[in-house]
Design a binder for these strands. Structure first.
Lengths: 151, 151
DNA sequence: ATCATTCTGCAACCGGATTGCAAACTCAAG
DNA sequence: CTTGAGTTTGCAATCCGGTTGCAGAATGAT
């Protein structure tokens, strides 16, 4: 397990070379498949499931998607969100939002369309935990109805 | 799905009659098996998995445990916690702590012993959600190391 | 006692996560 | 280039927790 290192990338303007660099910066060898999966993660504004990924990328076997996501996770490139009914979802760490060093990752789960949104603007204040509990990281998930489904 | 009704029970001193009453208060017919499962839930100071329950109660088939937990859930007697690696966990609603009308249920997941604790004393302040997101309920899970495992 | 309803155990099923393995690929050294 | 060790990949099989179908048992009102 690698320690996460803080980089500052502008994901919007990344080309293939930048993506290879991103992988290498995290100690991951860049392969064609990994670049495809990385791109898919990057293009998604929301956390997505392994299912979503394997559906979207027909050319890569699900076992490889699984192992790639595990690798990305081990190397601190993505993190997982446990989203109730939707199962585990994967999301790229983005330099401008959350990382392992931010305690809190607020997410919104729409009970209608089942999408999960990253609530980037919302910060969760420090809580006063009981004595003796060492906090590593927190995750915060709210269920509700998203603007699209409400309309 | 029943609306949850607020009762005030003293779980510590409940006998069999009280337990039957508790079930009936929630619109659930009291059967021998359901009382056993209810007791097990009540005796657990922490949320537990279906696996835990079926292991603990050898006399009841897992399908019945499953259906009983579903029934309890539908009738607002227990709620579920999605605890990352541990899968879903079940916990009795206790009159003195959380219920569907409390937005937030903070829980602590120990990454060493894999237990999940209910952080009763900790309240999560209201957050300022973005426009358009209708909040139904939130869940808050922190990962870390519990006092026992730290020692 | 009778009968409709509900509950229960068993066995089977399901689907997502995970793994074993052999082939394909990578890349540095000869 | 060729070789060979190490890594990655696809396929198929497996695992496992959750879930369901069904027939027999228990329940409770009449």
């Amino acid at each position: 397990m690698h320690l996460r290192i803080e980089f500052s990338y502008n994901f919007a303007i990344m080309n293939n070379n930048d993506l290879e660099q991103l992988l290498q910066d995290h100690g991951i060898k860049a392969t064609a498949n990994r670049l495809i999966i990385l791109k898919a993660l990057m293009n998604s504004s929301r956390p997505i499931t392994m299912q979503d990924l394997t559906d979207e990328i027909e050319s890569i076997d699900k076992s490889n998607v699984f192992r790639t996501l595990s690798t990305f996770r081990e190397h601190g490139l993505v993190h997982v969100i446990e989203a109730c009914d939707e199962g585990v979802m994967y999301e790229l760490y983005r330099s401008d939002s959350n990382g392992p060093h931010n305690d809190i990752h607020p997410h919104f789960h729409c009970v209608v369309c089942h999408k999960v949104f990253c609530l980037k603007g919302v910060t969760v204040p420090k809580l006063n935990y009981p004595e003796g509990f060492d906090i590593l990281e927190g995750s915060f998930l709210v269920n509700g109805i998203c603007p699209e489904c409400k309309a």
